[in-house]
Amino acid sequence: MNPPQPPLPYTESGNGPQVAILDWTPWQTTTLADALTPSYRVINIQPPIPPPGEGQDEAAAQNTAAALAATLETAGLTQYALIGVSLGADAALRLALLRPHAVTALILVSPTCVAPEPPQTPPDPQPWQTPTQTMLAHPENPAHPPPDPARAAALAALSQQWQNANALLPQLQTPTLAIFGQEDRLIPPQAPSLWRQQAPNCNICFIYDAAHAITLDRPQALHSLASDYLQRRETFIVENRNSQINP
């Protein structure tokens, strides 16, 4: 049995249905949380990333999920939607499996933990070390904030360990939306279809003109999509906007 986990640091904003966000990218943006705050109570967790060499394996991933669960329970969340971004999606997947009755919906943005088997190439830490060049569709955009180098280095180390979670997907009963940048160069091209095929309640979506860092490349598109899914779950596929020109 795992020992009790200390609460992880988090920020809280807004009122309404509860949403937890785990954004593990080299950019600590709050745009997604900010966009959801008017309609939701948002818990934004920025967990400390384990230093290299401290057991970054599946057991460590499970421990992290347990720590996240404990933190959200401490914050008073009993049922909540969960959004995981990049490596944060890997943690979110494990948390959804650990607390299937608490996590009512799962939105995974650029999840990195599923890949074709056997692995076609070994995990490459380089993209994490130069995220501006490798994770953005438009690195020339001056509006993008610079990545945090220390965070990027820690994520590079983490990315080496938390790899294939394919075997977990059939267990995932939570309604799930997996979102991918159309130009993502980190995620294997076969990964989206693996999610759709193996996770029983999973929809997949491609965001045009976005690479791995969708939160920076197409934030409004991501917010719009995530909001729609949070509101309507798997029925988000049904068009509900009025298209009359002159009613």
Binding site: F206, R218, A221
Partner: peptide, 11 residues
Amino acid sequence: TEPQPFAWEGR
């Protein structure tokens, strides 16, 4: 080319 049903969020 995509072998599974997908959604598309474009401009």
